Amino acid sequence: MPNDIVLDPNRAFIFPNRVREQRQRHGLQKLMALSNLIGDIPYIRLSKIERGEVVARADELTRIARALDIPPEALLLDVAARGFDIATWAEPFRDMTAWNEADEREAVLLAAALRVRRNQDRGLTIAVLDRDYGLPAVILSRIENAQKPLDRWNSATLASLCRVFGVSGVPALQEMITAQYRRGELAGFVTTISDPQMRLARTRERIAALRTELTSLAGGPATPVAAKKAAQGTPAPLASDQPRELRVHGAPLAGGLIGFTATDDRVEAPSRAGPRAFALRVCRATLGAGLPANAVVIADPDRLPTVGGLAAIRTGDAYRLVTVTFDRNGATTGYSVTPDMEINLDALDPADVAAVIGAVFA
Rank of each mutant, 00 (worst) to 15 (best):
residue 58 A to D: 11
residue 80 A to W: 00
residue 39 G to V: 02
residue 24 Q to A: 02
residue 36 N to S: 08
residue 33 A to W: 11
residue 72 P to W: 11
residue 77 L to H: 01
residue 94 R to E: 11
residue 92 P to R: 05
residue 107 A to M: 05
residue 75 L to V: 05
residue 60 E to Y: 01
residue 47 S to D: 11
residue 93 F to I: 09
residue 109 L to S: 09
residue 74 A to I: 03
residue 60 E to K: 01
residue 80 A to I: 01
residue 64 I to E: 02
residue 38 I to P: 13
residue 59 D to Q: 12
residue 45 R to K: 09
residue 94 R to H: 11
residue 91 E to H: 15
residue 85 D to E: 10
residue 105 R to L: 10
residue 97 T to E: 14
residue 44 I to C: 03
residue 55 V to W: 14
residue 60 E to N: 04
residue 105 R to Q: 06
residue 40 D to H: 11
residue 69 D to T: 13
residue 69 D to A: 15
residue 24 Q to I: 14
residue 39 G to Y: 08
residue 31 L to A: 09
residue 107 A to Y: 07
residue 55 V to A: 08
residue 46 L to E: 03
residue 36 N to D: 14
residue 33 A to S: 13
residue 64 I to A: 03
residue 78 D to W: 09
residue 86 I to R: 14
residue 51 R to D: 07
residue 56 A to F: 03
residue 87 A to Q: 12
residue 61 L to V: 02
residue 65 A to N: 02
residue 70 I to H: 03
residue 43 Y to S: 10
residue 41 I to Q: 01
residue 51 R to E: 10
residue 45 R to I: 07
residue 80 A to F: 00
residue 85 D to G: 01
residue 52 G to C: 03
residue 36 N to L: 13
residue 58 A to Y: 03
residue 24 Q to W: 04
residue 105 R to F: 04
residue 80 A to Q: 08
residue 43 Y to C: 03
residue 24 Q to R: 15
residue 46 L to S: 00
residue 104 E to Q: 15
residue 66 R to G: 11
residue 76 L to I: 10
residue 68 L to M: 08
residue 45 R to S: 08
residue 96 M to L: 14
residue 33 A to I: 10
residue 79 V to D: 13
residue 82 R to N: 13
residue 62 T to W: 07
residue 94 R to N: 11
residue 32 M to C: 02
residue 36 N to W: 10
residue 61 L to G: 03
residue 93 F to V: 13
residue 74 A to Q: 15
residue 59 D to W: 02
residue 61 L to C: 02
residue 71 P to S: 12
residue 47 S to L: 14
residue 83 G to T: 09
residue 96 M to K: 15
residue 95 D to W: 09
residue 105 R to W: 00
residue 70 I to M: 01
residue 28 L to Y: 09
residue 40 D to N: 14
residue 79 V to K: 09
residue 67 A to I: 08
residue 105 R to C: 09
residue 42 P to N: 07
residue 38 I to K: 07
residue 90 A to I: 04
residue 94 R to D: 01
residue 25 R to M: 11
residue 97 T to P: 02
residue 109 L to T: 05
residue 50 E to K: 05
residue 73 E to I: 15
residue 91 E to M: 10
